[in-house]
Design a protein around this nucleic acid. Structure first.
Length: 959
RNA sequence: GCGGGAGUCGCCCAGCCUGGUCAAAGGCGUAGGGCUUAGGACCCUAUAUCUCAGGAUUUCGUGGGUUCAAAUCCCACCUCCCGCACCA
C-alpha cells in the first residue's frame, strides 16, 4: 500500500486549521513560548531553513502534548539591504540573477517584472516561504504574523532603540565601510560584482620629514619604526605633492585618492618624479636620524602610499632589495652610502639570530627581489615574530614587550606624537560595485554604535548565559568567547529598509539591531492584526507599560485613545507568554544574532523576563556537500514537499544528524524513512483495540520494554536529542517487537492484538511531533478519536517495568544465541539438544559473588577466600573455575543489570525454560529440546556437560 | 594566532558527558536465500581475523598514562573543518 502523502497532509492540515489548533491565548495552563529566527525573504526557503523550523516545531508539538499552552509564532524580516541590491540588478536586467529567479526559484515572469521594487521581492518570497511553512505542517499561530516594516513594529523599534539610548548604551563615533564613490553609498557583499565582501586592513602611516614635506610610508608593523635604515621609492612613479589638512605630503596618486575618503581635506599642489628622490635623505621620526631614499621596483603605487620604509633585519623584501642594489651600477657616492647601511635588529625571537630576514631569505633560497618565494619568507618571519617575538633594548621604553602587544601600543604612541596616521585600504582589490565603479574605503562620521564593549553590560549578559539552558551544551563556551571579544557595533545604516533612528532621521536602524527583542512583539502583534491598536498615538509610555510594567494606565489610555481594559489585556498577554522559553536558530547566528538577543534582553527587560533557553542546530548538506547556488544543488523546500511529502522530509532531516552536526539530506535517507513509515502505517491499519488479560512472560517483557522506550524518548526530546528519540521510536524498538512476534508465534498465540494496539498507539503518539500528518492518519486507523497531536504524551510508569521478566527473557535469548553459536562453529546437524541449568547452590554463590563485585571486590583470590571462610559457601572449593568465570560474567554486564539481579530474587531457570524454550527452540532448531537442572536425579548427561552450568548461563549438549 | 568542533569496522554515521550490555547500533553497499511474470518494495542470513562447543586474537587518528576493566577518563602529538564582525 503506497501512501499518498499529499492527500493525507492536506486532509489533516485543513482539520487542524478548522480547529484553530495552534492558536494560543493566555489561559490557566502553564505556557511555553517557542520562537525561531524569522526568515529574510529574498529567496525561497530551502531544506536548510526547514531544519531549524522543523526542530522548533517538534519542540512545540512535544510541549503541547505534555499539556503546555504553547505559543509558536512566525514573522518576516524585511529590514536590510540585500533585496535593494536585487531590485537594482533586476532593473539592470542582470541575466544571472534573472535566470536564477526563473529556473532555480521558479518565480513566474510577471512577478519578476515587479521585482524592481524591493518590497515586491520581499512580499513574493514572504508568501512563498509562508506557504511552505504551512505545507510542512508547522504548528504556527499565524494570527501573530508581521513584517518588520509594519508601522507599529517601527514604533516598537523606536521604543527599543530609545530605551537603549536612555541607558547610555548607544554611542557615536566614526567607522570605516566599503564605499562606492559613484553611488555615494556603502557597499556590502550583495552590492558588488561577483558578490565579494569588501575586505580592508588598517595601515599605520609613518611620517618621514623631507625638506618642507612629509614622506609617509604605510606599514602593518609600526613597531619596526625602530629598525628603519632607508626608504624605498619607485623611480618610475610620478608622485603627487599634496596638502593634507595642514601638512604637505608626497604620495602616489592612488594614495591621495584613497585619503580623500578617509576624512581628510586634500589639495593637489604638484608632482615629483620618483627618480628625483633617490639618494636624498629623510629624517626618521622620534629618532631624528637621517636616512637615505633608494630605488626599488617592488614598490607599487597602488599599495599604501607608494613609498615603503626599509627594515632589512626583519623584512625579507627589504633585505633582498638591499642586496640587489649593491650589485647594480650606481654613483660611487651613493654606493659608499649603501655599503654603510647596517640592518638594525630590534626583535628577539626564539629560533632566529641577529637578522631573521637574512636567515629566511637563505632558507627559502630567494634569488632576487622579484622572487615569489619572498612572500613565503615574509609570512614566516612576520608570523614568528608577531606571536613569539620580544622587543630589544634599542626600542627604548618598549623594550621587553611582546610584539603582539607592542604593535598597538607603539601605534598609539606614534599617533599621539603626530609621527603617524592611519590609512585604510581594501585588501581584495579590485572590488567593483554593481554599477561598475571601483570601491574604496570610506570613514563614516557620526555613526551610531551599540556599545557592546561595556563591561557592566557584558556582566549582565554573562549572568543570563550562566542561568540559561543552552542546547547543545558544547556551544556555551562559544557564547562566552563572543561576549568576551565583542566591542562597539554599528547599529544604523544609511540605506536599506527599516525604521529610522528617532533622533537622527538620516539613519536607519540596522537589521541585526532591529531583530533582537522582537519576540516580545508577538504578544502584541495579535492586537495589531485585529486592528485593536494602530501606529497612531502609540507612545513610549504605552510600550513602557506593556513590556516593563511602568507608568499609569489611565494616562496612557488618554494618550493612545485605547481603553484601559484593552491596554491591560495586552499587558496580560505579554506577562503570560514572556519570557521566551526556547529560542531556536542555526549555528551561524551564534556570534551575532543570538548573542545580541541576550545582550538586548538583559539591557531592556528585568531578570524575570530574560530568555530561558537557546537551541542551536547545524546546517544541511545535500548529498554530502554544501548547498550553493553555483553547485545548483539547492532544493527549495516546497519542491521537496511535492516530491517526497512533508513528513518524510521532516523525518529525514531529523534522523540524519544530532543537533549541532551537519545533516546530510539525500534520496536514500528519504526513501528509507518512507518505507519505514509505510510499514508502520500498514501495521496500524490492521490493529484493532482489544482487551489485554492474562499476561504471559513475553507480554510483561514487551510492556516493560515499551516503558523503557517511553522514558528514553522523553528524556531525549527534553535534551533536544531528536535524532535519538526518533531512532528509538522507529528503529531501536523494532528489534524488540520482532522478538516478541517470534515468541508469540512459537506459542501460536492469538490474543496479542490488544497489546500490539496499545504499544503502537503509544508509538504513534510519540511519532506525532515528528511526522504530524501521517501520525494523525495512523491514529485514526487505530480507531482513536480526536487528534494524535492533541493526545496526551505517553507517561513513563516505573510500575509497568517487570525486572524479572526482562531478566528471564534475556536468559532465553542468550541461551538460543549460544545454541546457534555452537551450531555455527561446529557445523553439526543437531539430533537432540539438552540444556542444563545451574543448581541452587551455584545461585547462592552467584549472589554472594555479585554482592562482593558490587562493592568493588574483583580480585579472584580474595573473593575465593571469603567464600571458603563462610560455611554456607565453603563447598565452593570444589569448583574454583566457576568462581573465576562467574566474576567475569558479572563484570561483563552493565552496572544497572547487576543492580537488578542483586535486587531480584533467584528465579527458577529450569521451569521457565521448560515453559518457554521447548516450543520456541524446537521451531528454531527443528529438534527436541530437553531441559534439566544439573542436580536432577534423572539427569541425562552422557558427556558430563551439566557441571559447567552457571546461573544465567546454562550448559548445553548438542548431539 | 585566538576560539570552537571533528578523526570509529568498505562508505555515511551512533556510542564518549555517566568506563563494564562494545567486535562496537542504525543506514547504505556487497553476497546468498525467500517473495514477485519481471522490476521495485519487503523479509531472512552473512559481512575484522582465526576457530568442528558457546571461544580466542587484533581493532575506534598516533604515542603514552590511570584502572581489575578504556572507543569512553588524563597527558602529548598529528590531521581536517568552522568562526574572527558591523553582513543577513
Amino acid at each position: 500500500m503506497e501512501i499518498n502523502w499529499t492527500e493525507i497532509e492536506n486532509k489533516w492540515r485543513s482539520k487542524w486549521i478548522e480547529n484553530k489548533d495552534f492558536e494560543a491565548n493566555p489561559n490557566e495552563k502553564p505556557k511555553k513560548f517557542i520562537t525561531v529566527a524569522y526568515p529574510y525573504p529574498n529567496s525561497p526557503q530551502h531544506i536548510g531553513h526547514g531544519r531549524t523550523y522543523t526542530l522548533a516545531d517538534v519542540h512545540a508539538r512535544f510541549y503541547r502534548m505534555q499539556g503546555y499552552n504553547v505559543l509558536f509564532p512566525m514573522a518576516f524580516h524585511y529590514t536590510g539591504t540585500p533585496i535593494l541590491g536585487m531590485a537594482k540588478r533586476v532593473e539592470a536586467n542582470d541575466k544571472e540573477l534573472i535566470d536564477n529567479l526563473k529556473n532555480l526559484y521558479g518565480v513566474p515572469e510577471e512577478s519578476i517584472k515587479e521585482f524592481v521594487e524591493p518590497i515586491k521581492i520581499a512580499d513574493y518570497f514572504h508568501e512563498e516561504i509562508k506557504t511552505g511553512m504551512i505545507e510542512m505542517g508547522y504548528s504556527i499561530d499565524w494570527r501573530r504574523e508581521f513584517t518588520t516594516i509594519d508601522p507599529v513594529y517601527s514604533k516598537f523599534i523606536e521604543w527599543q532603540i530609545n530605551t537603549l539610548r536612555e541607558k547610555n548604551l548607544i554611542i557615536q563615533g566614526s567607522h570605516p565601510v566599503g564605499w562606492c564613490p559613484k553611488d555615494q553609498n556603502p557597499v556590502s557583499q550583495h552590492d558588488t560584482l561577483g558578490d565579494v565582501e569588501p575586505d580592508f586592513t588598517e595601515y599605520v602611516i609613518i611620517k618621514f620629514k623631507f625638506e618642507d614635506y612629509i614622506i609617509p610610508t604605510a606599514t602593518l608593523r609600526p613597531e619596526t619604526v625602530f629598525g628603519v635604515v632607508n626608504l624605498w621609492v619607485n623611480p618610475e612613479i610620478i608622485y603627487k605633492k599634496i596638502t593634507v589638512d595642514d601638512e604637505k605630503w608626497i604620495v602616489s596618486l592612488e594614495c591621495a585618492y584613497k585619503l580623500e575618503f578617509l576624512d581628510k581635506k586634500i589639495t593637489y599642489d604638484g608632482e615629483i618624479k620618483g627618480s628625483e628622490l633617490i639618494g636624498k635623505s629623510v629624517t626618521v621620526p622620534h629618532r631624528e636620524e637621517s636616512i637615505i631614499m633608494l630605488p626599488a621596483n617592488f614598490v607599487e603605487s597602488g599599495t599604501g602610499t607608494g613609498v615603503v620604509m626599509s627594515v632589512p633585519a626583519h623584512a625579507p623584501f627589504d633585505y633582498q632589495a638591499l642586496e640587489d642594489i649593491k650589485k647594480t651600477h650606481l654613483e660611487p657616492e651613493l654606493f659608499t652610502k649603501i655599503n654603510q647601511i647596517v640592518p638594525i635588529s630590534i626583535i628577539e625571537t626564539e629560533g632566529y639570530g641577529e637578522n631573521p630576514a637574512k636567515e629566511a631569505v637563505k632558507k627559502f633560497g630567494v634569488v632576487d627581489q622579484n622572487d615569489p618565494k619572498l612572500e613565503e619568507a615574509t609570512k614566516e618571519v612576520y608570523g614568528k615574530e608577531f606571536y613569539g617575538g620580544k622587543l630589544k633594548s634599542n626600542t627604548e621604553k618598549f623594550s621587553g614587550i611582546k610584539v603582539a602587544y607592542a604593535k598597538d601600543t607603539i601605534k598609539d604612541w606614534l599617533i599621539e606624537n603626530k609621527h603617524a596616521d592611519i590609512l585604510l585600504e581594501l585588501t581584495n582589490t579590485p572590488v567593483k560595485c554593481r554599477c561598475g565603479a571601483e570601491c574604496v574605503v570610506k570613514v563614516l562620521n557620526n555613526q551610531w554604535f551599540l556599545n557592546y564593549g561595556d563591561k557592566d553590560w557584558k556582566k549582565l549578559a554573562t549572568k543570563c548565559f550562566d542561568k540559561m539552558n543552552i542546547l547543545p551544551q558544547e556551544i556555551k563556551s562559544e557564547f562566552n568567547y563572543v561576549i568576551g571579544w565583542l566591542r562597539e557595533r554599528a547599529c544604523a545604516r544609511q540605506h536599506g529598509l527599516g525604521t529610522k533612528l528617532p533622533w537622527d532621521k538620516d539613519w536607519i536602524v540596522e537589521s541585526l539591531s532591529d531583530s533582537v527583542i522582537y519576540m516580545a512583539y508577538y504578544t502584541i502583534s495579535k492586537f495589531v492584526n485585529d486592528k485593536t491598536i494602530t501606529a497612531k498615538n502609540l507612545s513610549k509610555e504605552f510600550f513602557d507599560y506593556v513590556f516593563l510594567d511602568k507608568g499609569n494606565v489611565k494616562k496612557i489610555s488618554e494618550i493612545t485613545k485605547i481603553s484601559e481594559d484593552t491596554i491591560n489585556e495586552i499587558k496580560k498577554e505579554f506577562q503570560y507568554f514572556y519570557p521566551v522559553d526556547s529560542r531556536h536558530s542555526g549555528r551561524d547566528l551564534v556570534p551575532n544574532h543570538l548573542t545580541f538577543f541576550v545582550l538586548n534582553h538583559v539591557a531592556i527587560f528585568p531578570e524575570s523576563n530574560w530568555p530561558k533557553e537557546i537551541v542551536v542546530n547545524g546546517s544541511v548538506l545535500m548529498n554530502g556537500s554544501k548547498m550553493s547556488k553555483s553547485m545548483g544543488n539547492i532544493i527549495p523546500l516546497r519542491k521537496a514537499i511535492q516530491d517526497y511529502g512533508a513528513d518524510p522530509i521532516r523525518l529525514a532531516i531529523i534522523i540524519s544528524a544530532e543537533l549541532l552536526q551537519d545533516a546530510d539530506f539525500n534520496m536514500e535517507s528519504v526513501s528509507g524513512i518512507q518505507n519505514k513509515i509505510e510499514s508502520l502505517y500498514q501495521e496500524c491499519s490492521r490493529l484493532k483495540e482489544d482487551k489485554i488479560e492474562n499476561l504471559e512472560a513475553e507480554d510483561r517483557w514487551i510492556l516493560s520494554k515499551t516503558q523503557n522506550m517511553i522514558l528514553q524518548v522523553t528524556t531525549a526530546i527534553e535534551k533536544m536529542r531528536l535524532r535519538e528519540a526518533l531512532h528509538d521510536i522507529l528503529f531501536a524498538f523494532e528489534s524488540d517487537l520482532n522478538w516478541y512476534m517470534k515468541r508469540t508465534k512459537a506459542k501460536n498465540r492469538e490474543n496479542i492484538s490488544g497489546i500490539l494496539h496499545q504499544i503502537n498507539s503509544m508509538r504513534v503518539a510519540m511519532l506525532s511531533p515528528f511526522a504530524p500528518h501521517i501520525a494523525e492518519e495512523m491514529w485514526e486507523k487505530l480507531g482513536h478519536s480526536g487528534f494524535a497531536s492533541r493526545s496526551r504524551w505517553p507517561e513513563f510508569s516505573q510500575e509497568d517495568i517487570d525486572a524479572a521478566a526482562i531478566q528471564s527473557e534475556e536468559l532465553l535469548k542468550s541461551t538460543i544465541d549460544d545454541v546457534s553459536n555452537i551450531l555455527k562453529v561446529t557445523k553439526i546437524t543437531p539430533q537432540k539438544i539438552t540444556i542444563y541449568t545451574a543448581d541452587s547452590f551455584k545461585s547462592k554463590i552467584y549472589h554472594s559473588i555479585l554482592e562482593k563485585v558490587m562493592v568493588g571486590q574483583t580480585n579472584m583470590g580474595s573473593v575465593m577466600k571469603e567464600l571458603i571462610a563462610n560455611p554456607d559457601t565453603s563447598d565452593v572449593k570444589r569448583i574454583p573455575d566457576f568462581v573465576q568465570k562467574t566474576i567475569k560474567d558479572i563484570l561483563s554486564e552493565p552496572t544497572e543489570i547487576r543492580q537488578k539481579k542483586l535486587e531480584s530474587k533467584e528465579f527458577d531457570e529450569k521451569s521457565f525454560l521448560v515453559d518457554e524454550l521447548t516450543e520456541l527452540g524446537e521451531k528454531d532448531f527443528g529438534v527436541d529440546i530437553q531441559i534439566f537442572s544439573e542436580s536432577d536425579s534423572n539427569l541425562y548427561d552422557p558427556k558430563g556437560k551439566a557441571r559447567h552450568a552457571r546461573p544465567f548461563k546454562p550448559a548445553i549438549l548438542i548431539e
